[in-house]
Design a protein around this nucleic acid. Structure first.
Length: 320
RNA sequence: GGCGCCGUAGCCAAGUGGUAAGGCAAGGGUCUGCAAAACCCUCAUUCGUCGGUUCGAUUCCGACCGGCGCCU
């Protein structure tokens, strides 16, 4: 009997996920659901490494260009839409496959977030404005009493914890204990990761290719159309390119800043995958290995043995 | 050739006669509605080299090496 678990291709940025996914989707009638928190934004194309028009023509994609750059998106919203996209793909006779680098989005789909009690939007907006004025250490102090289990997290999570506690009277940490209304979705993962050293090289190459492809012009255009505080500008590298263009920094420094930001992002992704996917059905894959194609095939078919995720870059480099 | 300044971690950089700030980078970690985000932790037994003074020198003295500047 066929393995019906949802296929997820995941990995750090610039590792070669899309190439693997396209190859699989083409051979097996798949559809790609992009789990990427930046490719959702229209107009931010080159720097987010969106699939090209040719690639979009080869394989049906979902999740690309679905939001306005000034919209605040969320993992929960993505997961909701992803369920619809999956159904749509199936209806068209396609096998949906999730591919992307935003682990949190994937998780929100596979292991749904807690059910947030309804909140009054007007009060919520007012509270948001108030909380925004608090310095982070102050906010943390609040959360230490509002929801102590969340007080060690970053500002974004502190805001959320405070908001839920204040508006619903319930702690997120308590809400977690109730089973979410949406059922979990069994999944298995193909982790594409060429290893620390190769990944660095690939990142540099990709950044250079982005500039060569006219990224600067794209950013110049976006600067005219998208307000500077819009969420889409958070895509790593975009702010650096924008500042360089606006402030006349030299191109070399901008290129360097983008490479560094991308590298740091890739590192966070690898950490996330290493720890948050521990215990899941994971197949780790170096795209440069000679048997890559065969192993990717085997993974699709469900024949590949899984391995513990923390073994995932063993052998690729030494001294870790 | 002479004179002056400088030489502190991968990079930038503070510093004191009493046992090396900080920033960047890097590495590790957190993660339940902003996640390419937001956070947390770790990172010089040692201050160009060799001697000297001193209870004690990265800090003072000398020589040497290296860099920069000026003069001839």
């Amino acid at each position: 009997m066929a393995d019906v678990r949802l296929r997820v291709v995941i990995g750090p940025t610039a590792a070669g996920k899309s190439a693997a996914a396209l190859w699989l989707a083409e051979r097996h009638g798949g559809a790609i659901l992009s789990a990427d928190s930046r490719q959702i934004y229209r107009g931010f194309d080159i720097g987010t490494a969106k699939p090209t028009a040719a690639e979009l023509a080869r394989v049906p994609h979902y999740g690309v260009d679905v939001a306005d750059p000034r919209e605040r998106y969320s993992a929960a919203r993505w997961a909701d839409e992803a369920r619809r996209w999956m159904a749509d793909a199936v209806q068209r006779g396609r096998t949906p496959m999730v591919v992307g680098g935003t682990g949190f989005y994937v998780r929100a789909l596979v292991a749904p977030l807690f059910d947030a009690p309804p909140m009054d939007e007007a009060r919520r907006a007012a509270l948001e404005r108030l909380l925004a004025t608090l310095p982070s250490h102050e906010l943390r102090r609040w959360v230490r009493t509002l929801d102590p289990d969340r007080a060690h997290l970053g500002r974004a999570q502190l805001l959320r914890a405070a908001e839920v506690a204040l508006l619903t009277g319930r702690r997120i940490s308590a809400l977690h204990r109730a089973p979410p209304s949406r059922p979990p979705l069994p999944a298995r993962y193909l982790v594409i990761d060429p290893g620390h050293e190769r990944l660095r090289q690939r990142i540099e190459q990709r950044v250079d290719a982005m500039f060569a492809a006219g990224w600067g012009d794209e950013v110049r255009r976006l600067m005219r159309q998208v307000p500077p505080l819009a969420p889409a500008w958070n895509a790593c590298g975009y702010a650096a390119v924008r500042d360089a263009l606006a402030g006349g920094h030299d191109a070399r420094a901008a290129r360097e800043a983008v490479v560094v930001a991308t590298r740091q992002y890739a590192k966070r992704q690898r950490t996330w995958i290493r720890h948050q996917l521990a215990g899941e059905a994971v197949t780790v894959m170096d795209p440069a290995s000679p048997d890559a194609a065969a192993r990717i095939e085997a993974w699709w078919a469900g024949e590949e043995a899984t391995q513990p995720v923390d073994a995932h870059d063993g052998g690729v480099e030494a001294g870790r």
